[in-house]
């Protein structure tokens, strides 16, 4: 039995499920709206609504979206609710821990990464990262720095990234807070990389041709969309990325990099909830089938 934590109508889940149907491999999709329970009967039994699954029958888990959770009943009694909540958290953590013991894609825990830790570990693994600094008031009039949200993957924070280089202007509200400044890296193309258990599928995005999209290809140009084609990473870079993913305990994720005009690979960030559709479709990698094959085997 394969367990998939996901959302209603998630296209990637449906595509993977289609292959599992073809293979005739049993799977269960757990949605956020499902009511989940756990007992330790039979060395651990999971209830998804009425559906009962023994932990020992689960041979693979895909944490596509979400994880095992228990919906708390609100008794409108703060003490009691808090007590139950704390209880539930312990059970949830335990069940998720058990689920992570089998072959899995993603994890219950690793949905968020700390950008600063990631950059530090990337450097430790030998990857080149753009120069960055954390400052309260960034007085330096160095036009090659752009400001980014320090939290999570707001790598191209909307208000902030509309900054058209080379003029850097901070919103007043930001000037007193701690900000993350990263040196703008010139690029020949960008790379979007899907990583799964030591394997890489990369896509090069040629956005430089269009001045509108030099800082962010997601500001999509409809008439002439940026070219997206398959790319092979140099093995040395793959080794360094594997080092990074392992040190972050991530078995999957999507990685952003830049290839500079002098063909240097610069690491930008990693997103643990890797969207693979945007790499799979344009490059015809058929990652949906790769994932189904991985879960099945």
């Amino acid at each position: 039995m394969i367990l998939i934590f996901s959302e209603v109508n998630d296209l990637s889940t449906l595509a993977v499920a289609g292959y599992l149907d073809d293979y005739g491999v049993p799977y269960t999709v757990v949605l956020k709206t499902d009511t989940l329970r756990y007992t330790d009967a039979d060395k651990g039994t999971l209830y998804i609504g009425e559906n009962k699954i023994c932990l020992k029958d689960i041979h693979a888990v895909w944490f596509r979206r979400g994880k095992f959770f228990i919906r708390s009943n609100a008794f409108k009694d703060r003490e009691l609710d808090l007590y139950l909540y704390e209880n539930n958290v312990i059970i949830e953590d335990y069940v998720n821990y058990k689920l992570e013991q089998v072959k899995s894609i993603g994890s219950a825990a690793g949905l968020h990464v700390n950008k600063l830790i990631v950059l530090e570990k990337a450097k430790a693994c030998g990857l080149t990262v753009p120069d960055y600094c954390l400052e309260h008031d960034f007085q330096q009039q160095d036009a090659t720095y752009i400001v980014k949200g320090v939290n999570g993957n707001t790598h191209f924070n909307s208000d902030q990234l509309r900054i058209i280089l080379p003029v850097v202007k901070l919103n007043d509200s930001h000037s007193s807070g701690l900000s993350f400044f990263q040196r703008y890296t010139e690029k020949k193309y960008e790379l979007r990389i899907f990583y799964l258990h030591g394997r890489f599928w990369s896509m090069a995005i040629f956005s430089q041709n269009d001045p509108q999209t030099t800082t962010d290809f997601r500001k999509y140009n409809k008439e002439r969309p940026n070219r997206n084609i398959p790319y092979t990473l140099p093995t040395a870079i793959e080794a360094k990325l594997t080092c990074l993913m392992e040190s972050l305990s991530l078995n999957t994720g999507s990685i952003d990099m830049i290839v500079t005009p002098s063909l240097e690979h610069v690491f930008l960030e990693v997103n643990p909830v890797g969207q693979f559709g945007m790499v799979s479709l344009p490059c015809n990698y058929n990652l949906e089938k790769e994932i189904a094959d991985f879960l099945k085997s």
Partner: peptide, 13 residues
């Protein structure tokens, strides 16, 4: 570094 794109056709069902 730019391998040919696979021209395989896939899809379930």
């Amino acid at each position: 570094r730019f391998p040919p794109m696979s021209t395989a056709f896939s899809g379930s069902g």
